[in-house]
Design a protein around this nucleic acid. Structure first.
Lengths: 227, 227
DNA sequence: GGTAAATATTGACAAATGTCAATTTTCAGA
DNA sequence: TCTGAAAATTGACATTTGTCAATATTTACC
């Protein structure tokens, strides 16, 4: 079977653009423009969801703080992604925290407006259902990959995912700007182990790096390591 | 923060019971009674979803086959659980395979009937949305736990989850009947490593086992190991 | 451009986990 | 109840991964 990054990667981009235009127009009246500085938290795990976030610029990490100050990063959001609606739908607290990796801009739909709309609009609930279902499949794949692979393979898959996440809209070169600690938290390994594997990939000319910046130079070779 | 197994465990039980009675009545006309023998497959990953399954008796494992004949088990379904609707909703193939761990009985709703109903019933789509959202949170927690913990802790959490999965309806003693290979596939470790950790827990009188049967004898102590 | 603080890298070693090959125990069917 | 096959257990050892401490490099800020 052919390797498919698609299976492990998903963007909720354009979720709202698929709504009927009258509903979209109504929604837009309640939307607020906001921004947040690098390293600031957007929300904290255990807190009550305040609304839906649509990221328009920058990157956000979703993570869980674990005992021993280790941080597990579960997801990176990038421009176009919709965040935070899930726990709201099922009246739960946020299971994860969110923090900005860079300066970010986003649109915010307050909780009440969103829930009211959800009640009235079958198209929105069907849209969310479809999105959520698909997102779920991606997670399932990621989880089983994670459970069955060694650190090296996980790092390689993480590199490929990050390559998509950091892909610029103008089609320019992809540069992954992520510090080693966050990268290691994403892979679920120690920072030192990550550095060593990256060093090895660098020696094989599959990636290039300087400082915390990483660039993939041989994507095919990386993919080749996963089968 | 208090340990909550709830965070890592979820049953979709009674999903359909929450539907309005007229819609339920309509659905019941299309439902088929079926059964499947131990070790037989219910569906295979990559295949097209044929309908929705509601398990009424027995246990089903959802798993992914990995290279090197290793199997990663992602989820166990038990009586009351609803399976297989997710990939149907978003028009995808099954991301996982399903096989019976014991002789099972189930109700089957054919694809067309289910999708038709979904279109007509806002209550069903809202119900599914809520269920899916909650299920997702549980998965997120499991995944971050998985990524951040050692094999021993993962085994202990798996034991606690299995204790719920194997809880009999009549309130009798819980006996986990699962072979070591499947258990190891659930934890994401080698069968031998699993056996060693179980042996250790047995020596500490936290569990008892004979053959492949396992019984938890000191639940509190196990929970104590997770914080 | 210079400097202190943050971050990445490396080395040495310890601990955790996997693998392979016996051996023992359990289980299902005759 | 017996018996072969399947499954669980154990041992020895290799490999992977984590930890701690030191050092080199990069980055942010004046």
């Amino acid at each position: 079977m052919e390797f498919s990054l698609n299976k492990y990667y998903y963007k909720s981009e354009d979720l709202f653009k698929r709504l009927p235009s009258d509903e979209l127009a109504h929604l837009e009246k309640t939307i607020q423009q906001k921004s947040i500085r690098k390293k600031k938290m957007l929300f904290k795990q255990g807190s009550h969801p305040a609304g839906v976030y649509i990221l328009t610029k920058g990157k956000i990490k979703m993570y869980q703080s674990n005992p021993g100050d280790r941080e597990t990063i579960i997801y990176f959001y990038t421009a176009g992604d919709v965040m935070g609606y899930r726990p709201m739908i099922c009246q739960e607290a946020h299971p994860l925290s969110a923090a900005a990796l860079e300066d970010c801009s986003y649109l915010f739909i307050p909780r009440e407006a969103f829930l009211k709309m959800l009640k009235q609009s079958p198209s929105l609930s069907n849209l969310l259902l479809e999105t959520l279902g698909h997102e779920f499949s991606v997670w399932v794949s990621s989880m089983s990959f994670f459970a069955s692979q060694r650190v090296k393979e996980r790092i390689v898959l993480a590199l490929l995912k990050l390559h998509e996440i950091y892909r610029p809209e103008d089609g320019g070169k992809v540069i992954i700007r992520l510090n080693r600690t966050d990268f290691a938290g994403y892979v679920g390994t120690a920072k030192e182990t990550l550095v060593r594997v990256l060093g090895e990939l660098k020696k094989k000319n599959m990636i290039a790096s300087e400082g915390s910046k990483i660039r993939i130079t041989d994507r095919e070779a990386l993919i080749g390591m996963l089968r």
